[in-house]
């Protein structure tokens, strides 16, 4: 067969696949938003959910989502960033380093439902936390850790060695170099990475079903970390598969649209300033 003709056919096929993939993604987004956005109202966002009647809101779930997210970041950022700094700045080539890398990689591959059962076993049952905001946040922070480690290590490695040399040659200690030169320079990358982690944690459900529970506190907002803390993603699953309210579909669609909106916003709004920050650091804006 004529190789030129084949080539032209193949190019057509590639375009078709590329456009097809984009079309699937676009359809997906449109489908979620068009079905869900009409259900989103101020009342929906702030009202408490109903058990049996229609017209319930998702106020407590919205609060719990961000509360648990914030706590989980609070727990995981120090350890994740610390381990990332160690890997990038201190680790020598030896057995222990290999072990840390392998362990982090393994942790990154753990299915979230296994984290969920681990949290159920350790935090909820053994440590008597029950289905609680704190149990959920602690377990969720385990999911965050490996990504934080990797992002920190990668962004620090991207900082040119000349900065390290310059700082050490001035008599700075290693920690001073890390705190005053390396971390500020790596900040845009770190912010992007933490955004990524936050987006994933916000949409997580399998972990939280077994640790934060599928019900909400009678009070809203309830800052008590021992209160049970159903989140948006869990609520979406719960109303759709076990819920008794007649408007379960609408609530699920509204919640789905809200989750996607939040992910969109995280991707756009926080990624843009970090790009801006990067430009500013490079001195091009001056």
């Amino acid at each position: 067969m004529n190789s030129k003709l084949t080539n032209r056919l193949a190019t057509g096929m590639f375009w078709l696949v590329g456009l097809g993939i984009l079309a699937i993604l676009a359809w997906f987004l449109w489908h979620i938003l068009s079905a869900g956005l009409p259900h989103i109202s101020w009342k929906f966002l702030t009202k408490k959910p109903e058990e049996m009647l229609s017209g319930g809101g998702i106020g407590p779930q919205l609060f719990n989502s961000f509360y648990i997210l914030a706590l989980s970041l609070l727990f995981s950022i120090p350890f994740g960033v610390g381990a990332g700094i160690w890997l990038s700045e201190y680790a020598k080539k030896n057995r222990f380093t290999d072990l840390v890398r392998l362990a982090t990689e393994m942790l990154a591959s753990v299915p979230s439902i296994v984290f969920g059962l681990f949290g159920l076993l350790v935090f909820v049952t053994t440590l008597h936390m029950g289905y609680s905001i704190i149990g959920g946040a602690l377990t969720l922070s385990l999911l965050n850790l490996p990504v934080l480690v990797r992002v920190t290590e990668e962004t620090l490695r991207a900082v040119p060695d000349s900065y390290r040399e310059a700082s050490l040659a001035l008599g700075a200690t290693k920690w001073q170099t890390i705190r005053k030169v390396l971390l500020p320079t790596a900040l845009p990358g770190l912010v992007t990475g933490i955004t990524l982690v936050a987006g994933r944690a916000l949409g997580e459900s399998a972990i939280l079903i077994f640790t934060a529970g599928v019900s909400v506190s009678r009070f809203a907002p309830d800052f008590n970390v021992m209160a049970s803390g159903e989140t948006l993603a869990v609520h979406l699953w719960y109303v759709r598969s076990e819920g008794l309210v007649p408007d379960a579909t609408q609530i699920a669609e509204g919640t789905a649209a809200l989750l996607v909106l939040v992910v969109l916003i995280l991707n756009l709004v926080i990624a843009l300033p970090s790009r801006f920050l990067q430009r500013k650091m490079a001195g091009k804006s001056s």
Binding site: P160, S162, Y163, E165, A166, S167, L168, A169, L170, G171, A172, T173, V181, P184, T185, M281, A282, G283
Partner: peptide, 20 residues
Amino acid sequence: VVSLRKRVGMVFQRPNPFPM
């Protein structure tokens, strides 16, 4: 080493100002 480097300073081949 830290106070040694304060006494014996270094200028490098390529200018390496910090991004500040």
